[in-house]
Nucleic acid binder design. Structure first.
Lengths: 247, 247
DNA sequence: ATCGTAGAGTGGTTGGACCACCTTGGGAGT
DNA sequence: ACTCCCAAGGTGGTCCAACCACTCTACGAT
């Protein structure tokens, strides 16, 4: 009796996924053709095809008609589709997203301050340096990419996959959104200087393991980004006094 | 020229989804057979099948071999699969989930305290009454269902779909997990009394619009649940002083 | 050296057949 | 009249072989 069964789509999908995770198929590379995989694994092309479809739906693979099936980079299948159907359901809720992001980034900053290790320190500093360099230059796309990478580094320094997953997927969503909103604006260098300064403050407090200050710095940063980039008013009616580190 | 194109799987998926959202196929009901839909829409069965597969992947539909394809209730496709692949990637991370949940429930309680309206008040009180009744009885399943419904009511009182979405999907995941961990335990009535008391405190502070107290009550509740139900130590190393309302 | 294009390879689609499974209803046995 | 069983029909699941639509590339004409 075979352990694999090899004939069911989900079995194919699992096998493929394992092969990808084991590095057998590198990110960005092309998979063998459907016909090839079918013959190799003694399954019909239909089954292989459906198995691949599952991984496409999960964002692990991409198909290109006439060209082939390609392995996505990990950051690609890291969740953007989580929010996709939600934002389809609720046409525009950027304010709600920012509210959520506010909470997420604050807490992540606190956790990163408490838990980061030597490797995290190095990655955080490198990411910060990259942001600095990008903002000295004029490449808008690069600025956003490095900015997101910086926040990714924080996310990973939390050592909590749930936070990392949500932050990264959220940034991907917001990245697309930002590209649209920033498309026609002029590069306001003083805004960018503010962003860099806020990153500095955030990074310093994390590295100093000052969780409270890190949370405040993250809050300030997100508030600034929301107001300057998207011209959105804060959602909270602010009935009570600002609570704890999130003021 | 046709607006629909009708021949591509994603077109079929969209059409089907729209039909479901318009109530043409009620939740729980059975879809027409693949062969039927194919003939009706002038598409090959394979295409219809692949379109259905997409909606199955999104959790909108379920297939039952030999029986039919069924429309899932909205709460079913409300996100559980978001976490599914993550928990597959990281075998057991209940502590991480609880950490996230801690943050989420605290903030949701705060927002609910600030934003709830008359309708929310009624729903919250009804949900609380249902929990009370369930915990006086002995039905474990009912207790969990009403408990989750109570937290849903809070989630909806935030008036932020992002919070609602994540809380509901997270509860679904934890519900499955709880069923496993609670399966063999004896019903400890004093534990249940604590839970009811904590709900009471949480509800009262929300209805009093005391965001800070609501956040604290939620924190206490989640901590209690984590310790008593799952015997998990808190994840945070607690290097710094407990920060703000989350202590 | 450059450009165009034919051909090969890839994913996408088709139709039909068959398999595995579930549901149902009517007939056999009580 | 009631119960039980199972055969038939319907459903999703799989397979195959061919063809379509698209992309890439290497070869040949210019």
């Amino acid at each position: 009796m075979e352990t694999h069964d090899a004939g069911r789509p989900d079995s194919i999908a699992r096998r493929l996924e394992r092969a990808i995770q084991k590095g057998q198929f590198a990110p960005g590379s092309r998979l063998p053709s459907e016909r090839d995989l079918a013959q190799r694994w003694q399954a019909s092309r239909s089954i292989v095809r459906e198995g691949i479809s599952m991984l496409v739906a999960k964002g692990l693979l991409s198909r290109r008609h006439g060209s082939g099936t390609y392995v996505n980079a990990p950051s690609d299948h890291f969740g953007a589709e989580v929010w996709a159907d939600m934002s389809r359901r609720y046409p525009d809720l950027p304010a709600d997203f920012f509210e959520f992001r506010h909470m997420l980034e604050c807490r992540a900053a606190e956790l990163a301050a408490e838990r980061h290790d030597a490797g995290d320190r190095k990655r955080l500093q490198a990411a910060q340096a990259a942001v600095d360099a990008a903002f000295r230059g004029g490449d808008r796309e690069l600025q956003m990419r490095t900015d997101i990478a910086f926040h990714h580094a924080i996310a990973e320094a939390t050592h909590n996959p749930v936070f990392a997953y949500l932050m990264i997927s959220l940034h991907k969503l917001l990245h697309d959104h930002m590209q649209l909103t920033l498309a026609g604006t002029t590069p306001r260098s003083e805004v960018f200087r503010h962003v860099v300064a806020q990153h500095r403050r955030l990074l310093d407090s994390i590295l100093a393991r000052d969780a409270v200050e890190a949370g405040r710095a993250a809050a300030a940063h997100i508030d600034f980004v929301r107001v300057r980039m998207n011209h959105l008013p804060p959602r909270r009616p602010m009935t009570a006094a600002p609570s704890g580190t999130r003021g």
